[in-house]
């Protein structure tokens, strides 16, 4: 009866139905779970710069929906060649769920290399006895990433600035400020100016990028509907050197398109 319904024994059929007779690879589940899964370093692509240098962009995918992972810089979290080590995240936030799809963290940091750099730059994470690496080279045009604005429907990246005369920029390479000074237990203002350019709004989100301990944000995500400075407060429980990443993104579709948003980084030195 089943075959009759599908018509596979009808005129035109050449063989009776059968299970797929192929040598399928071993099934490797890619399910995002609450705890116990790894974080995968991802090479996103590269961006040629006007001065001839090349920016390599990286992101990560924490395959846990509830487990934030902390992997300090060092033997479990490093980049080679070592001269480029140090900008990568040490805090790996969970994969949020959006529209039924687990999201990852795209283009969280970037490394600029000389234009004649021909080696492979590798970001490696070690976790729970397993090693995960993201080799990066600027030798495939397919990974040449657009930056500030898309030719088609994706939004344009806003301008992010730290103070009137401070660092300013657009795109995933982003401006960096600091180190700023803060104290344990005292709410510290993270302020950044947003220029929306021609767009109606953007969502500015702060992420804990590096640091020795957990922090608390007063507002992690801020809807920005007019250009100007926005501030969120961050509170520290431990001293040390921290890095925060702000991402200004009009809508999540831009992540899938890999265009167009702006990152910015604030370094904060925290003392007791």
């Amino acid at each position: 009866m089943a075959s009759l319904l599908c018509g596979s024994t009808g005129v035109g059929a050449q063989e009776p139905p059968q299970r797929v007779p192929v040598d399928w690879p071993q099934f490797r589940p890619t399910t995002v779970l609450a705890f116990g899964e790894p974080v995968i370093p991802i090479f996103e692509g590269w961006i040629p710069n006007p001065d001839g240098t090349i920016t390599l962009s990286f992101g990560y995918f924490n395959l846990n929906t509830e487990e934030t992972l902390h992997i300090p810089l060092g033997p479990d979290n490093y980049i080679q060649p070592s001269e480029f080590d140090g900008l990568q995240p040490t805090f790996f936030e969970v994969a949020p769920l959006e529209s039924g799809r687990q999201l990852r963290h795209e283009s969280t940091f970037a490394i600029t290399v000389p234009g004649d750099f021909r080696d492979t730059l590798v970001w490696t994470l070690r976790l729970r006895g397993e090693e995960y690496s993201a080799p990066a080279r600027a030798d495939h045009d397919e990974f040449d990433m657009e930056d500030f604005e898309s030719l088609t429907f994706a939004p344009e990246a806003p301008v992010l600035s730290f103070g009137e005369d401070g660092p300013s920029g657009r795109g995933r390479r982003g401006p960096t400020t600091g180190p700023l000074s803060a104290r344990v237990g005292e709410p510290f203002p993270l302020s950044i100016a947003v220029d929306l350019l021609s767009r109606p709004s953007t969502t500015l989100t702060w992420y804990h990028h590096q640091g020795p301990a957990e922090v608390t944000f007063s507002r992690k995500a801020i809807e920005v509907e007019s250009s100007g400075e926005v501030t969120t407060m961050v509170t520290f429980s431990e001293p040390g050197d921290y890095v925060f990443r702000a991402t200004a993104l009009e809508h999540l579709g831009a992540l899938m398109q890999h265009c167009c948003w702006t990152n910015a980084y604030a370094r904060v030195r925290v003392t007791r």
Binding site: I40, I42, Y132, E142, F143, L255
Partner: peptide, 16 residues
């Protein structure tokens, strides 16, 4: 496949 050494994830780009 332009780059077999890369982790490949969900995405809209052709290389994702």
């Amino acid at each position: 496949n332009p780059n077999p050494d890369r982790w490949v994830v969900y995405g809209r780009r052709t290389v994702d």
